[in-house]
């Protein structure tokens, strides 16, 4: 069977901006695949091209076996897209929004209403079904938006940053939904800025930066390539951070980079046994530690490991 997604040298330029720069991506059917990247990396551009909303500038792509340019209609009939910003009609109720989509997919009025009710129940929106969407919370809106993408079961679902801006509870709900969708055999391509999210949901992931694919693999492979876990360390005296950084780099034998705040350091520990060594070294030198936390590497850590620089934010013009 053809793969869910296969791209070769996919590129897209907006004016001067190279949003995508020769991306080769391969996604098997039936998996949740994560596209990880900071603001402006090209995630949305990638998804919009694959969903046939915009044309690629160069390269080629096949989605579910169909060429995205020559067979756009065939692709459209099999995929569904939940964009980065909820695309539901604020003036309509949740129920009406779903009926609208169902009708536009060719459901009869009766089936459309039945399907809308079914989805509202599944997404825990029954109580709000008859309320205008403008009264919904961010999490409810997201769920409705995803529900709208599932009216006809797509073979491939694109989710663009499905949890950005949601509180932890709503985020968990969305995660459950994504797992349930995948459990039904739908391939899911989701973009995210959080390694944790990709780690929890995605079987494999690709890291993109400045329109280029800079790493690909399972999250275990990716984290291994970064080197285990990260110790986030706060020194009491910001003046001694440079000293601490140099000391730790020497102790562990690899670079240590600064965190976002003047007292913060992020230290990769390939081995848990390295953690006490970090502590010992600092105490021996008399550098006071204000705070210490052991964490999964963040996107920043991944970027630092892969590119040698933090994932800086590009000035993003609001894309129309």
């Amino acid at each position: 069977m053809s793969p869910a997604i296969e791209t070769a040298g996919l590129s897209k330029t907006f004016g001067e901006t190279r949003a995508l720069n020769g991306v080769d991506l391969f996604v098997r059917r039936g998996m949740v695949y994560g596209l990880l990247g900071p603001n402006g990396a090209g995630k949305t551009t990638m998804i919009r091209i694959l969903a046939t909303l915009i044309r690629p500038g160069g390269g080629s792509a096949r989605v579910l076996g169909h060429d995205i340019v020559k067979e756009a209609a065939a692709v459209r009939a099999k995929v569904s897209l939940t964009g980065q910003f909820a695309s539901v009609d604020e003036d309509l109720t949740g129920h009406e929004n779903l009926v609208l989509v169902a009708r536009l997919l060719g459901f009869s009025w009766r089936d459309a209403k039945a399907r809308a009710r079914e989805l509202l129940r599944a997404f825990d929106l029954e109580d709000a079904a008859r309320r205008q969407v403008r009264t919904y919370s961010g999490g409810m809106r997201r769920r409705l938006d995803i529900a709208a993408s599932l009216v006809a079961r797509p073979e491939l679902l694109f989710l663009d940053e499905p949890t950005t801006g949601l509180d932890p509870r709503s985020r968990n709900q969305v995660w459950d939904i994504v797992r349930a969708i995948a459990g039904e055999g739908t391939t899911v391509l989701l973009t995210t800025q959080y390694l944790e999210e990709a780690d929890r949901l995605a079987e494999r992931l690709a890291v993109i930066d400045h329109g280029r694919l800079i790493a690909e693999g399972t999250s275990r492979e990716l984290k291994a390539s970064i080197g285990g876990r990260t110790v986030h360390l706060r020194v009491s005296d910001p003046a001694r951070r440079d000293e601490a950084r140099a000391l730790l780099a020497e102790t562990l034998g690899h670079d240590v980079h600064d965190g976002h705040e003047p007292t913060l350091l992020a230290v990769q520990c390939a081995d848990d046994e390295h953690v006490p060594r970090v502590l010992t070294a600092l105490t021996a030198r008399g550098i006071a530690i204000a705070e210490l936390a052991l964490a999964q590497p963040s996107l920043d850590d991944v970027f630092f490991a892969l590119t040698g620089r933090p994932a800086e934010e590009r000035p993003t013009e609001e894309a129309a």
Binding site: T52, L53, R76, S80, L81, F85, A86, S87, V88, D89
Partner: peptide, 10 residues
């Protein structure tokens, strides 16, 4: 609001 994206992808 992105509604046209949805319509266009139907």
């Amino acid at each position: 609001k992105g509604l046209f994206d949805r319509f266009r992808s139907l």
